[in-house]
Amino acid sequence: MPEIDENRPLPLREVEQLVELVRESGVGEIRVRQGETEISVKARPEVPATPFGNQVASGTQVVPEGVESEPSPEMDGLHAVRSPVVGTFYRAPAPGEDAYVEVGDTVSAGQPLCIVEAMKLMNEIVADVSGEVVEVLAENAGGVEYDQPLFYLRPDEQ
């Protein structure tokens, strides 16, 4: 929606041109300022991910609700290590053994963090950056889906 200075006549021609420009260029937003008038034209906002709100309550997700829609830790400079496969998440190399990593450990890139078992195949998931383990996001021996965040790491300062 355009935001326009109230005291001036509406510069509808310009708005029209901007709308056309946004549509043609495919960019998300164009903002123009001239004197005290600022016009901002945004492309139609993304539709909410849940078209049927009531369905969410009845659906149980394998992933805990809200994991994907919580961008804040990543905005804090944290790095998410995500599962490359669908499978069962194990924090230790074998039952009864110590976990690969604990919160607070420092890991280097390439170091194993966990196992995701898929069809009897043990997939070792390694850290793709060096840093500190801040949070373990999946539950031991629980299911994880493709692209699900497993750990938050705080990458080392370069």
Binding site: P51, S58, T60, V62, V85, V86, G143, E145, Y146
Partner: peptide, 25 residues
């Protein structure tokens, strides 16, 4: 949205998701 449960099985290309037998099993 409409299924009782759902699982993300892979990236967009069908070969890595809807044709990905290990992920589906």
């Amino acid at each position: 949205e409409l299924a009782d449960e759902s699982v993300c099985i892979g990236p967009p290309p069908a070969a890595s998701s809807y044709l990905n037998v290990p992920a589906i099993i």
